[in-house]
């Protein structure tokens, strides 16, 4: 009996490291990580976006002081040089400008190779708007969910402005169906800068996001200081935000 236990112990000692080894990754890299870096500016003059700071709108002249600026980006995919796509699974991200880490989106396990373009959706696709309780970036605890008329808010921007009749502004832009759907998919070509995923080092895709664009056609806060549901105006603002979301460069 004693011997048996001893043998078992020896067996366990041999088996245990085998378990450990089997959990380790293989050495030859077949996948790499790509970071999507979102650089948030205000206007075209190189001003950085900042919360709790007076920012003067380059077009309508409003002074806007943001307490909150959040938006969804989803369904990222990369097009390979051979025309096929790598599609990120569970690709939903809440970019919250109060949390700088959320401005860097990690695309993990991207197969090694060359890529020519990236596609993404600003907002949350309609499928996830009709499929019940979600998790992660799509959790209702993120306060980006319309409970009274089911759907995710695409952009939530709140703050104060002396131009506003009540001193504050609150723009909740969203809607996933019908004529005012704010959800828009977009593709950015890398042009001559191909993205090479080698697996040895992280590659970065940089976007410039002009956060002031959202108000480039909406007029002053003096006229409209609140959007709370889908409308022609909210669609215009979503489109303008989208136009301010521009591929910059590949950084290796």
């Amino acid at each position: 009996m004693k011997k048996l236990l001893k043998n078992l112990f020896a067996f366990a000692i041999i088996i245990f490291p085998l378990f450990m080894i089997s959990c380790e990754k293989e050495q030859t890299a077949t996948e790499g990580t790509v970071l999507v870096k979102l650089n948030h500016g205000w206007g075209m003059s190189g001003t950085s976006f900042a919360l709790n700071t007076n920012l003067v709108h380059p077009m309508n002249g409003d002074t806007m002081n943001f307490s909150k600026y959040k938006y969804y980006i989803s369904n990222l995919k990369l097009k390979k040089a051979d025309g096929t796509f790598w599609v990120q699974p569970e690709s939903y991200f809440l970019v919250d400008l109060s949390n700088s880490a959320s401005s860097s989106i990690s695309l993990n396990n991207v197969p090694v190779g060359d890529y020519t373009e990236i596609s993404y959706t600003l907002g949350v696709d309609s499928a996830r708007n009709v499929s019940g309780a979600q998790s992660g970036a799509l959790a209702t605890t993120n306060d980006m969910f319309w409970s009274w008329s089911t759907g995710y808010i695409m952009i939530k921007a709140e703050g104060t402005s002396p131009q506003s009749t009540n001193g504050s502004f609150s723009f909740h832009i969203g809607g996933f169906s019908g004529q005012y759907s704010a959800v828009q998919s977009k593709t950015a070509s890398f042009g001559s800068n191909q993205l090479s995923v080698s697996g040895e080092k992280n590659t970065e895709i940089h976007f410039n996001v002009n956060t002031a664009m959202t108000w480039c056609n909406s007029g002053s806060c003096a006229a409209v200081n609140s959007v709370m549901m889908p409308s022609a105006l909210s669609l215009q603002m979503a489109t303008d935000f989208n136009n301010g979301f521009v591929f910059d460069k590949i950084v290796e």
């Binding site: 708007n129 009709v130 499929s131 019940g132 309780a133 959790a139 209702t140 605890t141 306060d143 969910f145 409970s147 009274w148 008329s149 089911t150």
Partner: peptide
């Protein structure tokens, strides 16, 4: 509300109902 699973969010967060945040 379009789905039974998210139905409860409405009364919980409505200011004149349960008035709470998720």
């Amino acid at each position: 509300v379009n789905h039974i699973e998210v139905f409860s969010v409405a009364p919980i967060t409505n200011h004149v109902e349960m008035g709470e945040s998720m």
